[in-house]
Design a protein around this nucleic acid. Structure first.
Lengths: 254, 254
DNA sequence: CGTTAGTTTGAAAGAATTCAATGTTGGTGG
DNA sequence: CCACCAACATTGAATTCTTTCAAACTAACG
């Protein structure tokens, strides 16, 4: 069932990833599972493809919005800049995640998006997608779920920024990465940070020094092992307790 | 052009608000402007209606998701509760705004939503809406814009929580209310806060005492006038400068 | 008129930042 | 191959901002 459609030459599907949705490794993350083969191929036809080198822009705030992007390979960061020139990273995106949804309303991109790795994206022309969507109910609903998910994941950040202390924020951040990697079949306890300490700090509303101190503290407590950008979570349950604010240190005798 | 459709008796359209989209005062906020009369009436037919008393729940986190809600009258707050029982208000909603979009993905509501005023909502059964949407391209696109707008407005909060100091946060909060009221034809400089100081603090990641101090400070500086929940912005430009982090006090001589 | 919920104010404590210095890594060119 | 540089990261000390704790105040309501 994984052979390439006949319209595609064999060289085009060489490499670790195919350019076709039906054989893409992100299939279950990106596409509705109940889409039939025919509809999947119709979708294939409208989807383009692009490579972004490390530190390259996928798009910039203010760019006209024409397409959504699905991360096929690699990692991205999205940030907004305010009038004073301060930046706020609003999210990190990894394989299978959608970029550009925030631009639909104004037809202009709202963020700068930069690749943290050499990366690849699927280009999804939005007008075409909407036309297709109207004819394919499962895809319609799936697309709404994706947008809804985006809202939910931003609410998570609001929760982190709004009522967690520094240590909890960082714990929540690690746990979020952990579950994302787990969902993609990678180890939930060992992974590489794709972003600098500065990016992490910015994202979590903390300074780079605070991040550094938190890493040292958690390392000393045997919670994590960190070597540069390599992270190993040594005590996942305790990390979860920490992030959930269940203050194990303050258990009162009665 | 504003007479009620014949299927509706005259008593039903009495009062300040009609139950029909075509004559609803929120028309331009809620509906696509390029929807024809016939399509508007099809939409009318699926939309229900409900009153929520002050402090009443519109829905609770975990409730099964069946419908979206559009605020027709009044104000709401949405908040999430974490495992430790801490709450985080993720947004305040006023007339014309949509509630429940975050529930599409999981089919369960993600927030508790409470009315701050005696309020009224339109009930929009989601399955029916999706079916209708697929047949009405302008409505399809409009719905996507609404979801996109929700994403954008959450990014605003992330920006506030992620890199503003207390004073800027509160300034940004007031300005946000100001522009919302302006958009609805009310005064941008005089309005009533519908939420308690505690709610404001929670929303902005600050304590109630901090909010209180900020109000006092801004009052002393002639920026605002506050009498209980009545707010008057006395110096809008300066408030904007403050929120934008343009530090007028720190202009260096050379 | 007293009670209550919500708000304001003050003083002390705590959390995170700022500033400054030092350490580490990886790349580049001599 | 090594020395040096630049970018990134860590650590310490002082400062700043915000919270916490405590008390007093205010308006609304029965």
């Amino acid at each position: 069932m994984d052979f390439p459609p006949k319209s595609v030459t064999s060289t085009e599907v060489l490499g670790t990833q195919s350019r076709n949705c039906s054989v893409c490794s992100q299939h279950q993350l990106c596409l509705p599972t109940d889409l039939n083969e025919c509809d999947t191929q119709r979708l294939d036809k409208i989807i383009g493809w692009r490579k972004i080198p490390r530190d390259g822009f996928l798009y910039r705030a203010g760019d006209p919005f024409t397409s959504l992007y699905a991360v096929r390979l690699g990692h991205f960061k999205s940030y907004q800049e305010n009038l004073a020139g301060d930046r706020q990273i609003t999210g990190f995106q990894m394989t299978g995640e959608m970029l550009g949804l925030d631009a639909i309303n104004s037809a202009q991109h709202q963020c700068d998006v930069i690749a943290l790795d050499d990366s690849e994206v699927c280009i999804i022309p939005f007008k075409t997608l909407e036309a297709l969507i109207a004819q394919m109910p499962p895809l319609l609903h799936h697309f709404h779920r994706i947008m809804s998910q985006e809202i939910t994941s931003e609410q998570k950040i609001i929760n982190i920024l709004g009522n967690m202390r520094a240590e909890q924020r960082f714990a929540a951040f690690l746990l979020n990465l952990s579950s994302h990697y787990a969902k993609r079949g990678y180890s939930p306890t060992q992974f590489q940070l794709r972003m600098s300490r500065e990016d992490i700090g910015n994202y979590l509303g903390l300074t780079i020094e605070s991040i550094s101190r938190l890493i040292s503290k958690m390392r000393n407590e045997g919670l994590i092992r960190v070597q540069q950008r390599n992270v190993e979570i040594l005590d996942l349950p305790r990390l979860k307790k920490l992030a959930a604010d269940i203050d194990t240190l303050n258990i009162k005798p009665f």
